[in-house]
Each structure stands twice: as C-alpha cells, then as structure tokens.
Simulated assay, not measured.
Amino acid sequence: MTNEPNPDSVLRRTVLKSGAIIAGALGMLPSATASGRENETQADKTTPSEPVQSQKGYVIAIDGITDRDRYMNEYFPVAAETTAVHNGEALVISFDPTVLDGEWCHDLTIVLEFPSVQAAEEWYADDALREVRQIRHETTAYSNKIITSQYSPEDQA
C-alpha cells in the first residue's frame, strides 16, 4: 500500500468541492448561504473564535475583456502578485472553458483560494490592487467578482 492519493478520488473531490463552491455562490444551497449561515448579510463579520475562520475563502471572477493586452500587462501581474502576498492560490484561470450546459460567454474565469474569507477580503482591499482597479474597469465590458467561504456539509446541520 502506498501513501499516494488515488488520482480518480482526488479529481472527484476537486470536482465536488468546486461544484459546492459554485452552488453556494449562486445561492443554490437550500436555506443557507455558501458559508452555511442562514440570513447572512455582507455586514456580518466573524470573529477569530468562530469556526468560519478556519474555512478557506474563495474569490470567483468572470471578466468580459475588451483590451486583452493591457489587461494582461497592466492589471493581471499586480492581481497575481497581491494574490501571492495574501497567501492565495489560483485554482482556475481559464480563457476557454468547456461549456457543459447553457451559455458561458465570459472571456476569463478565475477561482482564487485563500486561507480564509478575511484573507480574501484583505487581498481585494490591498492598496496595490486598488491602484490598478481602474485599469481592470477600463479593459473590460464587465468584471464580476464574489468572495465566498468554503462549503462544508456540517454547516447545513
């Protein structure tokens, strides 16, 4: 017996995790938000003693890019650098995803993972990222981003 993970089970867990994150972000989870807390509002803040702090935070972004050269040369490097500064990791960066159902007309889809929702919020508020935010707006027809917490089945209990 080896300690190597089964590639099929790793892929399955990754797909299930991604689906749960997206379902939570889209409000498809019954009677709770993606964090599993009912009646959550943006004004709600957790404290370090609450279990949500141990959950990872995710930024999901879709952009309709109108000036790809400028976006990739002026905005994207700063976004990538600040992601690393806040211990984030890009899980998905896709210009051409395979559409399984419906329509997906976005030029860029990104999923970033952070150690916590607070870390994701701190990334978005980072001064260096704020400085290039206008470039993102100037180089996209739209730029939609959300922050959500990791989905956990225990949160539904």
Rank of each mutant, 00 (worst) to 15 (best):
Q150R: 01
T83Q: 08
R12S: 10
D155Y: 08
H86P: 13
W123E: 08
A119Y: 10
R130K: 15
T109Y: 12
T41M: 05
V10N: 02
A119C: 10
A84Y: 10
Y124S: 13
H86E: 07
S18I: 09
R136N: 10
D8S: 14
L26C: 08
A61L: 09
T14G: 01
A125N: 07
E81L: 07
E4G: 10
A20R: 08
S143N: 03
R12A: 13
M72K: 11
K17A: 09
T46P: 14
E4V: 09
T47G: 15
I22M: 08
E81N: 06
W104M: 12
A90D: 15
A119N: 09
A23E: 05
E40Y: 04
G64K: 07
F95W: 10
Y124M: 10
T33D: 12
D96K: 14
D69N: 06
V78R: 06
P77D: 03
L11G: 13
L26W: 06
K45R: 14
A141I: 09
T109D: 12
L100V: 10
E40V: 02
Y124L: 10
V59T: 07
V92G: 00
N87Y: 05
T82M: 15
D69K: 07
L112R: 11
D63T: 13
A119G: 08
N39S: 12
K145H: 12
Y124I: 15
K17G: 00
T109C: 08
D69M: 02
I65N: 00
T82H: 11
V132A: 03
T82D: 15
E74R: 04
T139W: 02
D126N: 08
G24C: 02
Q156M: 11
L91F: 01
M1K: 09
L91P: 00
F114M: 03
A61G: 06
I147N: 01
T139D: 05
L26I: 01
R136I: 04
E89P: 06
L91N: 05
A120F: 02
E74A: 03
D63P: 07
D107A: 09
K56W: 01
V52P: 14
K17Q: 05
